[in-house]
């Protein structure tokens, strides 16, 4: 059976990237790769709804980490990752987060 150990870089690099990306504005550092205008394209919100700021930022951080962090992690460590085993859980978590974020967004806009 295939070795299912998880190479450390495949979760440490994306996690570090996500935390840095999400916290970058709060750290008082120059907003080098933080793109609020891009967030607005995907997460349009009315002016009076301040709740969505962190949703958008964390969502973008997670997506960016999955893409960029994952690519960097694969460059660092090419051992076979156990995506066959934990892949469905990671995908289900991402889908569930997207479903809840979309529902909360529309509930705050139209239903409440």
């Amino acid at each position: 059976m295939q070795d299912h150990r998880w190479p450390a870089s495949t979760w440490t690099v994306p996690l570090a990237f996500a935390l840095l990306y999400a916290l970058w504005p709060a750290l008082g550092l120059p907003r080098f790769f933080y793109a609020p205008q891009t967030r607005e394209v995907f997460w349009h919100r009315p002016e009076d709804v301040v709740l969505m700021g962190w949703y958008g930022r964390l969502t973008m951080a997670a997506v960016a980490a999955a893409v960029v962090g994952g690519a960097v992690a694969r460059l660092i460590d090419r051992r076979p990752a156990p995506w066959q085993r934990l892949g469905p859980w990671i995908a289900a978590g991402g889908v569930l987060f997207a479903l809840i974020a979309a529902a909360v967004s529309e509930i705050t806009r139209w239903i409440l």
């Binding site: 479903l99 979309a102 529902a103 967004s105 529309e106 509930i107 806009r109 139209w110 239903i111």
Partner: peptide, 9 residues
């Protein structure tokens, strides 16, 4: 609102 949720989902 529910229709928009349907579209997203």
């Amino acid at each position: 609102g529910f229709f928009e949720i349907k579209e997203h989902w």
